[in-house]
């Protein structure tokens, strides 16, 4: 192999210049949460388990009708998860609470995409098929998706579902927050429109967070004094308040730090302006140049 000295210096010069042009320190990680996004408050004490939200959701999003839409008893025997045919499902939990006749009191909990303020899935998607909208909705653009399912790996709430039985054009399926409806003036998500007891309160996230806190304050003893989703993974658009511990209704305990923070910090401090690869390239080039020169010289003397 010929190792041209001129080429090497030319290349190294360019590489060195780009490294020098770097800002000395990588910028600190900042939340990219939209400033005035919408949110939705789920008050589990108000939910009666009518499953109308499931029905409205599938109607609005043109999904198949929910499994046994009218059933409010045996369907709850099995714990369901949102999947490729349903963006939201309601589950029933018996948490040990009793009513005045000593019958176990059910708690119903709706599950759907939480629309995180700093979503892991958005950070994970390599082609930017998932984006965080100004409305707060985490939008999915199938035209960019390659189907790697990294979003599903990343999601701490296990929400994105996959059309595993579509061989060529499968899609990631998840709650859309009805963004085309809510981006219109006065628009509501399908589920919040139909909820008969207003267990779902839709509004600006800031406003409904205040509503939630007020409700906790005004009803001491009724609720657990905590708004789930206020701080979880840096905050979510959907918030929950409940009279039973959140783990008991399958809302996982999560760190308060936005999950993409660590990996994005590492990525950007190492690779912004490609400074570290260029530096490595330079160092290795120098080593290669030096080690080859050392070995070439005796050969040259030998008249090769």
């Amino acid at each position: 192999m010929q190792f041209s000295r001129r080429n090497f210096f030319k290349f190294m010069g360019v590489a060195g210049a780009s490294v020098a042009a770097l800002p000395s320190s990588a910028r600190a990680w900042k939340s990219k949460a939209p400033p005035d996004s919408y949110g939705c408050l789920v008050d589990l004490t108000r939910c009666v388990g009518c499953r109308k939200c499931e029905e409205a959701c599938s109607e609005v999003n043109k999904l198949p009708a929910p499994e046994r839409a009218d059933c409010q008893c045996t369907i709850f025997d099995r714990k369901r998860r949102p999947d490729d045919k349903a963006y939201t499902v309601v589950n029933r939990y018996f948490t040990g609470k009793l009513d005045q006749f000593d019958n176990p009191l059910p708690t119903y909990a709706k599950v759907q995409c939480m629309h995180c303020q700093d979503p892991s899935c958005v950070s994970a998607c390599l082609a930017g098929a998932l984006t965080k909208d100004e409305t707060g909705a985490v939008k999915y653009d199938v035209s960019r998706c390659i189907g790697c399912r990294y979003c599903m790996v990343a999601c701490p709430f296990e929400i994105p579902a996959y059309e595993y039985h579509n061989p060529i054009t499968p899609k990631v399926m998840k709650c859309t927050f009805c963004y085309d409806r809510i981006s219109e003036q006065g628009g509501l998500p399908g589920c919040a429109t139909i909820c008969p007891t207003e267990a779902l309160t839709f509004g600006k996230r800031k406003t409904i967070l205040k509503v939630a806190q007020k409700r906790l304050k005004e009803n001491p003893g009724k609720y657990i004094d905590y708004v789930y989703g206020e701080k979880e993974v840096g905050g979510t658009s959907w918030l929950y308040i409940s009279s039973v511990p959140f783990e008991k209704v399958n809302l996982p305990a999560l760190p308060n730090k936005p999950l993409p923070k660590l990996s994005e910090t590492i990525q950007h401090s190492l690779f912004s302006y490609l400074w570290s690869p260029l530096a490595l390239f330079g160092v290795l080039g120098a080593v290669m140049y030096k080690s080859n020169k050392v070995q070439e010289e005796p050969q040259n003397k030998g008249g090769a």
Partner: peptide
């Protein structure tokens, strides 16, 4: 597609 649609935040 990732060659044209970049998400530089993504490790993948």
């Amino acid at each position: 597609k990732p060659m044209f649609y970049w998400n530089t935040n993504s490790v993948l």
